[in-house]
Design a protein around this nucleic acid. Structure first.
Length: 583
RNA sequence: GCGCCCUUAGCUCAACUGGAUAGAGCACCUGCCUUCUAAGCAGGGGGUUACAGGUUCGAUUCCUGUAGGGCGUACCA
């Protein structure tokens, strides 16, 4: 019987137990869906639990404890259970033998994917994140989209997809016309700089808000640009390039990567044909002078406004470019999925775009999955969208340099840094700072609003990025001292009471990864990484490693350390956080 | 008006198809640098999960209502 379960592909212990339970449930003609085994919420009582007896009891009209006993009778002969018993109203509590745990661990050590399955090759996923606007200085509000999007991209890569990150700049709407018309009013002639743009744009934007005639100028300029006016296009290209240089500086500092630097303008060549096509198919219709795609359905509870393709003045809108961008992406990547990492407040907009894409056949349901992975708003301590005292929003550069400064001074106090040269110190300070900022943001649930707290973002103690780095660095130091080279192979794996909980935790990775992938939530990886770091730190404090006399135990512990380090490295890699050699 | 989301410890946040005694970090209190990095470890106090009902063996989670907050709602992006 035992051999039967040995062939199961590498996965988490909970998954393996679930498969065993499913067989037992099936044999008893109970619903298999109830068989799921999870890590026990009661660590003292058991390692794992299965709650399926209770809901099954209702269907079978039997006492839940009796059902639980039937299930246990089905599986108890399998030699992997140290203990399997009923708790409370019908929980099935499971504790595994150390032999089985170590067997699992040995196979885990040999698996470069840590039990994470790989999807079939050749599937492209486009991720749309960052979304900075031209001519605007990047502020802390850009943090979430960039960091979450980049992390999701890294997760997709690790899952085996061909993930393509696109920055999708805001380079085509009416702000462009505002800037162009402003430059014209200034009779501008010379080199454009980022500082200048950052000054011009808000000025022009305000002027347009207050003055209708000024707005008309901007509209005309937008129109001219979108119709391919040569001199406007040249000028536009110029300040786009200047802006990109500024963006790259910020993204580089953050360690956020993009495979493509496209923008809304890249969808422009597709708009005309798209509009014609939708009009001819009667999917787009005229309404109140504008061209719209109705997307409301009878089953809707709420009123769903149509997606507007053309304004009454003929100009294109945000939704138009978003729809055309899908066509552009289909042509360049033929993706099976597009993930938009954009503010949650735009949920309705994406609902409209997605529906229009379905209805028009641009993105058939069975061909392209469209996901809006929205994120919550970054609020100030007053619960309102974050603003500094001056009324503006803190610049991204400012946040980063504050964090670096703090890391630098923390490093200067440290004994260890005395023999670091200046370059190493700078590099370590940068890595620590970025780890702090990114982890502080990523550990929040993606879809929930959260409060921007500068102290929290630049904190290095407790549940922070630097804490994770610190644990990883400690292991590196340990492995160096043990002269470990390459992968540790441990034939006689030994665990004691002090090692068991770390060993069990290491088997959970596939579950957390799967969950994070399913919901597009990096914070689940943060949680697991932190738990792992904490568990390791406890293990490190309680167990001898290098000084362990029992050679087999010492080797086992070193293997645990190495595995912990590998998993931490992977988690941090997927979160976009780099580990220094020491700190 | 209609719709969506939120309310969990002093603060900031978790809680996997509803599961057992709701978890972390910060702050506060007590210990620990003569074992491998104290950005650390061990331990303590701190909760009517906004409120009132309902469904259920079991509710922070699902349903209804109330209060408070945020957001969206065809010519911005």
């Amino acid at each position: 019987m035992r051999r039967r379960f040995k062939g199961i592909a590498m996965s988490s212990l909970a998954q393996k137990l679930t498969e065993i339970m499913e067989q037992a449930f099936s044999a008893l003609e109970l619903p298999k869906e109830n068989a799921r085994v999870q890590v026990s919420g009661q660590v003292e009582a058991a390692q794992f639990q299965c709650n399926g007896a209770m809901p099954s009891a209702k269907i079978a009209r039997k006492n839940p404890r009796e059902i639980a006993q039937n299930i246990i009778d089905q599986v108890k002969h399998i030699e992997i259970f140290e203990d399997i018993s009923i708790g409370g109203p019908g929980f099935i509590n499971i504790t595994l033998t150390d032999t089985y745990i170590t067997e699992h661990l040995k196979s885990l050590l040999k698996d470069v994917r840590f039990g994470i399955p790989s999807v079939e090759q050749g599937q492209n996923i486009v991720l749309d994140y960052g979304g900075p606007n031209i001519a605007k200085a990047m502020h802390v509000g850009h943090l979430r989209s960039s960091i979450i999007g980049d992390s999701l991209r890294r997760m997709c890569l690790h899952a085996g997809y061909n993930a393509i990150g696109d920055v999708h700049m805001g380079d085509w709407g009416s702000p462009m016309g505002m800037i162009l018309s402003e430059l014209e009013l200034m009779n501008f002639d010379g080199d454009i700089t980022m500082e200048m743009l950052a000054e011009i744009y808000p000025k022009a934007s305000n002027a347009c808000k207050e003055d209708k005639a000024r707005m008309a100028l901007a509209r005309a300029a937008t129109h001219k640009l979108q119709n391919g006016d040569e001199s406007y296009t040249k000028l536009w290209r110029e300040f786009i390039d200047v802006s990109i240089v500024g963006m790259k500086k910020n993204f580089d500092a953050l360690g956020v990567h993009f495979d493509e630097w496209k923008g809304e303008s890249d969808a422009h060549p597709f708009i005309d044909d798209m509009v014609k096509d939708l009009r001819s198919k009667n999917i787009a219709i005229d309404s109140e002078g504008a061209l719209i795609v109705p997307v409301a359905q009878d089953s809707d509870k709420k009123e769903l406004p149509p997606l507007m393709l053309l304004k009454s003045d003929g100009a294109v809108l945000y939704g138009t470019t978003d729809l055309a961008t899908i066509i552009e992406r289909k042509q360049s990547h033929n993706p099976s999925k597009i993930i938009y990492v954009v503010d949650q407040r735009q949920a309705l907009h994406f609902e409209q775009v997605f529906r229009a894409a379905r209805k028009s056949g641009i993105a058939p349901e069975d061909k392209i999955e469209l996901i809006h992975a929205g994120f919550g708003t970054m609020n100030g301590s007053d619960g309102k969208p974050f603003k500094t005292r001056a009324g503006g929003v803190m610049r991204l550069e400012e946040l980063i340099s504050m964090a670096i400064e703090k890391a630098q001074s923390r490093l200067n106090e440290a004994e260890l840094a005395k023999d670091m040269d200046k370059a190493e110190r700078a590099s370590v300070a940068h890595k620590v700072a970025i780890a702090a900022v990114k982890f502080a943001d990523l550990q929040n649930n993606r879809s929930a609003d959260y409060i921007f707290d500068i102290d929290r973002m630049t904190s290095f103690e407790g549940k922070t990025g630097p804490y994770l780095l610190y644990q990883a660095v400690r292991i590196q130091s340990l492995l160096r001292k043990a002269h470990v080279q390459g992968d540790i192979i441990c034939e006689e794996f030994k665990i004691t009471d002090g090692d068991r909980s770390l060993a069990l935790l290491l088997s959970e990775l596939p579950d957390h990864f799967a969950s994070a992938m399913k919901h597009y939530t990096p914070h689940l990886l943060c949680d697991y990484a932190f738990k792992l770091a904490q568990e390791f730190s406890s293990f490190y404090g309680n167990c001898h490693i290098l000084s362990e006399k029992d050679e087999a135990l010492k080797l086992s512990r070193l293997a645990l350390c190495q595995q912990t380090h590998k998993q931490l490295s992977l988690m941090l890699e997927m979160l976009g956080i780099e580990i220094p050699a020491r700190m």
